[in-house]
Lab assay of single mutants.
Amino acid sequence: MEVRTIKVFTTVDNINLHTQVVDMSMTYGQQFGPTYLDGADVTKIKPHNSHEGKTFYVLPNDDTLRVEAFEYYHTTDPSFLGRYMSALNHTKKWKYPQVNGLTSIKWADNNCYLATALLTLQQIELKFNPPALQDAYYRARAGEAANFCALILAYCNKTVGELGDVRETMSYLFQHANLDSCKRVLNVVCKTCGQQQTTLKGVEAVMYMGTLSYEQFKKGVQIPCTCGKQATKYLVQQESPFVMMSAPPAQYELKHGTFTCASEYTGNYQCGHYKHITSKETLYCIDGALLTKSSEYKGPITDVFYKENSYTTTIK
């Protein structure tokens, strides 16, 4: 009895394709271990004539594949690729409408935090270190965002349907971005203890939790000093293409032309909904596939993004 075979390709990165001759009487799992086709788990399936010449994702289970996976995804987590594939199996079914010149995501599976993050990423200057993220990001900007969303979920250790947080998501993504040249110098002034300067680099240099107003941050924000008295913390120097200011959701007025974009969060910790506000020729609110415009805006804002380049204080 002759062994019926077909020729397929296996890959971990969709760049390096490895030619395989597979036995049609055995499952993919018996031949390769966990195997995925377009995100779908085909591990328990036997090869079919229609699979001839198709590319299958496999887990990096030998040295060659491990090197290829690390170079593309910059992670050695053995569960990463499987999590990416199972997320992709959902995100490829989502709709990605162009809204006001940006790629958004039609609401499904509690994905409003991903839509808000995706919209924000198209408006701030950011370059990702893992080629996987950078490639998928370019495709997302062009309207094909399924891979990018699935990668975000995998890097953030999230599953489809789980509630997510924009600030946490951005923080994970910033860790995989090139923020080497970003720098922030802060000064804390206390009447009792004097003053202390701190220099922050990388992710810490672009994120701040405690106030939404970048102007206020430049002037000074009140913080408790270690001595128990009130101290003032203010920005001395900022070198970065953008800054992200966050605070627990509270009524906040966004003035046209003073910011790049913002995240609105309605609801409580267990259950809520994100919308995205962007400042173009007027203010726009993007909620999944829905767009509304207004000249002014007041609502429960939790993150505001500002364009920056270089700032030095005039406070002496």
Results as ranks from 00 to 15, higher is better:
Leu153Tyr: 13
Ser310Gln: 15
Lys191Leu: 10
Met24Phe: 11
Thr116Glu: 05
Val22Gln: 02
Lys201Glu: 06
Pro241Asn: 07
Ala177Thr: 11
Met24Gln: 13
Asn268His: 04
Lys106Ile: 08
Asn16Gln: 11
Ala177Ile: 12
Gly101Pro: 04
Ala289Phe: 06
Asn147Arg: 08
Tyr172Gly: 13
Val42Gly: 03
Tyr269Arg: 15
Ser104Lys: 02
Gly143Trp: 01
Tyr306Leu: 04
Ala69Glu: 00
Val12Thr: 09
Pro224Asn: 14
Lys183Ser: 09
Ser294Glu: 11
Arg139Pro: 02
Gln30Arg: 14
Cys227Glu: 01
Lys275Asn: 08
Ser310Thr: 11
Tyr96Met: 00
Cys182Thr: 05
Thr5Ser: 09
Ser240Met: 00
Gly257Lys: 01
Ala289Arg: 02
Glu71Leu: 03
Leu179Asp: 08
Asp38Cys: 11
Val236Phe: 07
Gln134Tyr: 01
Cys271Val: 09
His18Ser: 04
Asn187Trp: 06
Leu88Asp: 08
Leu119His: 13
Ile301Phe: 05
His273Asp: 06
Gln134Trp: 05
Gln122Ile: 02
Ala132Pro: 03
Tyr252Trp: 07
Lys201Gln: 10
Met85His: 00
Ala132Met: 07
Met24Tyr: 06
Thr266Ala: 00
Ala146Pro: 02
Gly164Ala: 07
Asn100Tyr: 08
Tyr297Trp: 04
Ser240His: 12
Cys225Thr: 03
Thr27Asp: 11
Ala140His: 06
Ser213Thr: 06
Tyr36Gln: 07
Gln216Ser: 10
Ile45Leu: 12
Val243Gly: 00
Leu126Trp: 04
Lys280Val: 06
Gly220Glu: 02
Lys127Ala: 06
Asp165Trp: 01
Thr312Asn: 10
Asp13Cys: 02
Pro78Asp: 10
Tyr252Asp: 10
Asn110Val: 04
Ile301Met: 03
Ala247Asn: 04
Ile152Asp: 00
Arg141Val: 11
Thr55Ala: 11
Leu81Gln: 05
Val236Arg: 01
His74Ala: 05
Cys112Phe: 01
Thr192Met: 08
Ser50Ile: 11
Met26Arg: 15
Lys44Glu: 14
Arg141Pro: 05
Tyr234Trp: 06
Leu59Gly: 07
Gly194Ile: 07
Ser213Lys: 00
Ile301Leu: 01
Gln30Pro: 06
Tyr96Ser: 06
Leu235Glu: 03
Tyr274Ala: 10
Ile277Trp: 15
Ser295Cys: 11
Pro224His: 10
Asn49Ala: 14
Tyr297Phe: 06
Ala145Leu: 05
Thr260Pro: 00
Gly53Ala: 11
Asp13Arg: 10
Tyr274Ile: 04
Asp13His: 06
Val236Pro: 02
Lys7Tyr: 11
Tyr284Trp: 13
Glu296Ile: 12
Tyr265Asp: 06
His176Ser: 03
Met209Pro: 07
Asn100Gly: 15
Gln251His: 11
Gln270Glu: 15
Ile315Cys: 15
Gly210Asn: 01
Lys92Thr: 08
Leu37Arg: 12
Ile6Lys: 08
Tyr137Asn: 05
Tyr234Cys: 08
Pro34Leu: 11
Ile277Arg: 02
Pro78Lys: 08
Ile6Asp: 09
Cys112Asn: 03
His74Trp: 03
His276Thr: 00
Ser79Lys: 15
Asp180Gln: 14
Tyr84Trp: 00
Ala40Phe: 10
Pro248Gln: 11
Tyr306Ser: 02
His74Gln: 08
Ser104Asn: 00
Leu17His: 09
Thr5His: 12
Ala142Pro: 02
His276Ser: 07
Cys227Gln: 02
Leu179Glu: 04
Tyr72His: 14
Cys285Gln: 09
Leu283Ala: 03
Met24Asn: 00
Tyr208Glu: 07
Cys271Ile: 14
Asn129Leu: 03
Gln238Asp: 04
Tyr113Cys: 07
His48Trp: 11
Gln230His: 06
Thr278Met: 10
Glu215Asp: 13
His51Ser: 04
Gly194Pro: 06
Gln216Trp: 03
Val8Asn: 09
His273Ala: 06
Asn89Asp: 09
Asp77Gln: 04
Val42Ser: 08
Lys218Glu: 02
Thr282Ala: 13
Ser279Gly: 03
Gln270Asp: 15
Ala108Trp: 09
Leu283Trp: 05
Asp13Thr: 08
Thr159Lys: 14
Val221Tyr: 07
Val58Thr: 11
His273Gln: 00
Gln20Cys: 12
Gln196Pro: 00
Asn16Trp: 08
Ala231Ser: 04
Met209Ile: 15
Glu281Gln: 04
Thr266Gly: 05
Glu264Leu: 05
Ala250Ser: 11
Ala115His: 05
Gly220Asn: 02
Glu144Val: 07
Gly82Arg: 14
Phe259Gly: 01
Phe148Arg: 05
Glu68Ile: 04
Pro248Ile: 00
Tyr28Asp: 04
Ser246Met: 04
Leu291Lys: 01
Phe32Trp: 15
Gln30Glu: 11
Leu153His: 05
Asp77Glu: 09
Tyr311Pro: 09
Asn16Asp: 13
Tyr297Gly: 01
Gly299Pro: 01
Thr169Glu: 04
Ala247Leu: 00
Val99Ile: 15
Ile6Met: 13
Asp38His: 12
Arg141Tyr: 04
Asp63Gln: 08
Asn187Ala: 12
Val221Thr: 03
Gln98Gly: 07
Lys54Trp: 11
Thr11Lys: 05
Thr198Cys: 08
Thr169Tyr: 05
Thr27Gln: 13
Lys106Ser: 13
Tyr234His: 05
Gly101Glu: 09
Leu121Asn: 01
Ile15Asn: 14
Phe128Val: 07
Gly161Cys: 01
Asp38Tyr: 08
Glu71Met: 10
Lys158Met: 03
Leu59Ile: 14
Val8Ser: 02
Met85Tyr: 14
Glu144Cys: 06
Ile152Gly: 01
Thr192Tyr: 07
Thr199Arg: 09
Cys225Trp: 03
Cys182Lys: 03
Glu71Trp: 02
Glu239Pro: 01
Ser279Glu: 05
Val188Lys: 10
Glu125Gln: 08
Leu17Pro: 00
Asp13Tyr: 10
Glu253Ala: 13
Leu254Met: 07
Gln134Cys: 04
Ala247Met: 02
Lys316Leu: 15
Gly267His: 15
Lys275Ala: 05
Thr64Met: 15
Gly82Ala: 15
Pro224Ala: 12
Tyr28Met: 02
Leu200Phe: 11
Leu235Met: 04
Thr159Gly: 09
Ser310Lys: 06
Glu2Leu: 10
Tyr208Phe: 14
Cys149Pro: 05
Val188Arg: 06
Cys225Ala: 02
His51Arg: 07
His90Ser: 11
Arg83Met: 10
Gly101Arg: 02
Ala154His: 00
Val58Asp: 06
Lys307Asn: 14
Cys156Pro: 00
Asp13Trp: 15
Lys255Asp: 08
Thr103Gln: 01
His273Val: 04
Ala247Cys: 06
Thr19Gly: 14
Thr198Pro: 01
Leu290Cys: 08
Gly202Trp: 03
His273Pro: 03
Ala69Ile: 07
Glu264Trp: 02
Gln175Asn: 07
Ile124Asp: 08
Gly39Asp: 08
Lys233Asp: 07
Tyr214Pro: 01
Thr312Tyr: 10
Gly82Tyr: 10
Thr260Arg: 09
Ser246Arg: 03
Met85Arg: 02
Thr313Lys: 15
Tyr306His: 02
Ser25Ala: 14
Tyr96Leu: 07
Thr266Cys: 05
Gly257Val: 08
Pro241Cys: 01
Trp107Gln: 03
Asp303Glu: 03
Ser246Thr: 04
Val243Lys: 00
Glu71Thr: 12
Leu121Met: 09
Gly288Pro: 04
Thr226Gly: 13
Leu121Trp: 04
Met26Cys: 14
Gly164Cys: 05
Ser263Val: 13
Ser240Gln: 02
Pro130Thr: 10
Thr43Lys: 10
Leu114Arg: 04
Glu144Lys: 10
Lys191Val: 09
Gly202Asp: 03
Ala231Arg: 04
Gly202Ser: 01
Gly288Phe: 07
Ile152Tyr: 07
Ala145His: 01
Asn89Gln: 07
Pro47Glu: 01
Pro97Arg: 13
Val42Leu: 13
Glu215Phe: 08
Val189Gln: 08
Gly257Leu: 05
Tyr28Lys: 08
Gln238His: 04
Leu133Tyr: 01
Gln122Arg: 04
Lys191Glu: 15
Met245Gln: 00
Gln237Asn: 08
Lys183Pro: 05
His176Arg: 10
Ser50Asn: 11
Lys219Ile: 05
Phe148Glu: 01
Ile124Lys: 01
Val12Phe: 09
Leu17Gly: 07
Lys229Thr: 14
Leu17Glu: 10
Gly82Ile: 11
Phe32Thr: 12
Asn178Gly: 06
His51Asn: 07
Lys307Met: 11
Leu102Asp: 04
Arg184Pro: 02
Thr159Pro: 05
Glu71Phe: 04
